[in-house]
Design a binder for these strands. Structure first.
Lengths: 183, 183
DNA sequence: GTACAATGAGACAAAAATGTCTCAATCAAG
DNA sequence: CTTGATTGAGACATTTTTGTCTCATTGTAC
């Protein structure tokens, strides 16, 4: 049976999450296709990773939109902001479950990183609004808070990869730790 | 003037922190020596990274020892544990300032990783003791708490690398966020 | 000044992965 | 069944980095 492009992408994501430095040959094997066929779909490894990267960014943007962070910022309403924050964090976990390996990927194309910075910028503004609403302490630089989200997502990805934490416990642990710390 | 092995290591660390995937040629250039000389000191790139890795682990172990985590665990004394925790976290930041690039290095030799797991195991036991003493919430798996330390250190490294956070603010932000979260 | 050690520059082969290409086999549509 | 498209297997050249080696040069100790 033919293996669709989507199936290849799915397999590539799965395998890259387990082995982030996998070669095209490994990825092809993981997808159950030949290296030649993989190259017919993605001219180069860069192109493949780039496609996955853009998907991750689209997901991230979608999460931001569905969480309603723009509206929440505009309103400044505490309850709205709180709900958006919850949704944003849950969405972040979901994205990492799929694209976690990209978090620590070191060789991403510049335009992807630029777009990533743009999206992160919206996140920073949102977090800033959360600070003004008293949801997040005001004595932390918003960019640091954004980095904390990033760092905790790395922790999530690594914990799950190593089997230290069950998938179902992740959202609670992540949100709990993010908001209240460990003490 | 001759460039000592120590100077090479220092330059390599500095450069690898800025460009984690740097080749031997780049590292040699950064150290101001020829590629041949670099190879005379470190037969292979793996060997170089491995040497740096073992240094980082030694530093980590030293931090654990100087923080007195073993004694604190043995005593179970809350004040002792608190002081050890503070020292441990401060030490972690210091290590990352130097060896941060290793946090997300994907191709480390197995024996290094094994040793890393051993040292981390001491950390987990210590964090567990902190939970029993009420310094850290008991509803978080200690391995998750350990991952949180890791993740926040990644956040620290990345923030500093990007210039989002000043070096001098790092310890406060790190400890504050770790213990109290962002809310 | 001489001798010895370390260095830099560069040539070189080897390894590993990449990307291209061909060809025969398979599969699906008509 | 036939045709046309897609695939897998593998050969191939290329690229990049690695690791080795040589040789002339530098510099340092004696």
């Amino acid at each position: 049976m033919a293996v669709s492009r989507e199936q290849i992408i799915t397999a590539a994501i799965r395998h890259l999450n387990a082995a982030p430095t996998a070669s095209m040959a490994e990825i092809a094997a993981a997808a159950g296709i030949s290296r030649a066929t993989l190259h017919r779909h993605f001219a180069s490894r860069d192109e493949l990773v780039t496609v996955l990267g853009w998907r991750a960014l689209e997901d991230w943007q979608r999460v931001q939109r569905e969480a309603g962070i723009a509206e929440a910022v505009a309103s400044g309403d505490r309850a709205l902001l709180r709900e958006a924050l919850q949704a944003l964090l849950h969405g972040g976990v979901a994205i990492c479950h799929e694209h976690g390996f990209l978090l620590t990927e070191r060789a991403l194309p510049a335009d992807l990183l630029r777009r990533s910075d743009e999206i992160e910028e919206h996140e920073v503004e949102f977090l800033s609004a959360c600070q003004r609403a008293g949801l997040i302490r005001a004595d932390l630089p918003p960019r640091w808070v954004s980095s904390v989200v990033f760092g905790l997502l790395v922790a999530v990805t690594e914990s799950v990869r190593r089997g230290d934490v069950a998938q179902r416990d992740v959202p609670r642990l992540f949100l709990d730790t993010f908001l209240r710390g460990v003490a």
